[in-house]
C-alpha cells in the first residue's frame, strides 16, 4: 500500500483549494485524518499530542500548498510534514518527562475495532515501542506499520536508505530485547 493511492482525486481537490475554494480542503482532512493519526499516536505515544501534531500538519500543509510540487502525491507530501511535526512534538514531550503510551480511548477499549480484535498485551507492545529512540521508532513504524518502501522513507525523513535499513533492523532487535525483558517480570 502506497501513500498516494488516491492520487487523482487528491490532485483535483488540491487544484480547487489553490483556486480559492478553501472549503474543499475539508475533503483532504477527512480523507487522511485517520491514516495519519495512527502514525502520530504510535510515534508520540499519546492521543493528545498526536491530535495536536495532526492538526498542525494539516494547517501547515494548507499554508504551503502552493509548494506541493506534485498534487497527485499530496498524501505523501502531507505525510512528510507530519513526520517532521512529530519530531518536534516528540522532542517537546520528551522535555516534559518520560514518554509512555496513555491512549485513553484505547485503554477503554471501545473506540477502536471490535473487542474481539483486541488481544492481550497491546499495552505492553505500546510500552515497548515507546522505549525505542524516536529515530528507531520512526523507521520501524514507517517500514512495518505504514508499509513504505525505503526510497519513500528516505524522501520523508531525509535519511539515507542504508541508515534507515539499519534503524529498522536495530528497532526490531531492541523490541525483542524489551519484550522478552517484560515477559520475565
Amino acid at each position: 500500500m502506497g501513500i498516494d493511492s488516491v492520487g487523482t482525486s487528491d490532485a483535483e481537490v488540491v487544484r480547487r483549494v489553490l483556486a480559492g475554494d478553501t472549503g474543499a480542503y475539508a475533503a483532504l482532512v477527512a480523507r487522511y485524518r485517520d491514516r495519519l493519526a495512527r502514525y502520530a499516536v504510535h510515534m508520540l505515544g499519546n492521543r493528545e499530542d498526536a491530535e495536536e501534531a495532526l492538526q498542525d500538519a494539516f494547517v501547515r500543509a494548507y499554508r504551503s500548498l502552493e509548494r506541493c510540487d506534485d498534487a497527485a502525491r499530496f498524501g505523501a507530501w502531507l505525510y512528510g510534514i507530519l513526520v517532521n511535526r512529530c519530531r518536534t512534538t516528540g522532542a517537546r514531550a520528551a522535555k516534559r518527562g518520560r514518554v509512555f503510551v496513555r491512549d485513553d480511548a484505547a485503554l477503554n477499549g471501545v473506540a477502536h475495532a471490535s473487542a474481539a480484535e483486541q488481544t492481550e498485551g497491546e499495552d505492553v507492545v505500546r510500552w515497548a515501542l515507546a522505549r525505542l529512540t524516536p529515530e528507531y521508532r520512526e523507521a520501524f513504524l514507517l517500514k512495518h506499520v505504514e508499509d513504505l518502501e525505503y526510497e519513500e522513507m528516505a524522501r520523508l525523513t531525509g535519511a539515507g536508505v542504508s541508515a534507515l535499513k539499519m534503524r529498522v533492523k536495530r528497532a526490531r532487535e531492541q523490541l525483542q530485547v524489551i519484550l522478552r525483558e517484560a515477559e520475565r517480570v
Binding site: 480542503y25 475539508a26 482532512v29 477527512a30 485524518r33 485517520d34 493519526a37 495512527r38 499516536v41 504510535h42 491530535e51 495532526l54 492538526q55 494539516f58 494547517v59 494548507y62 473506540a111 477502536h112 475495532a113 480484535e117 483486541q118 488481544t119 498485551g121 497491546e122 507492545v125 505500546r126 515497548a128 515501542l129 513504524l141 512495518h144 506499520v145 523490541l175 519484550l179
Partner: peptide, 19 residues
C-alpha cells in the same frame, strides 16, 4: 507487534472542524 500497531486509529471529526 506489527499486527497490534496496524489496527485502525480513529480521530474524532472535531479535528476536521478545528483545522
Amino acid at each position: 507487534v506489527v499486527r497490534h500497531l496496524r489496527r485502525p486509529v480513529t480521530v474524532d471529526s472535531a479535528l476536521d472542524e478545528r483545522v
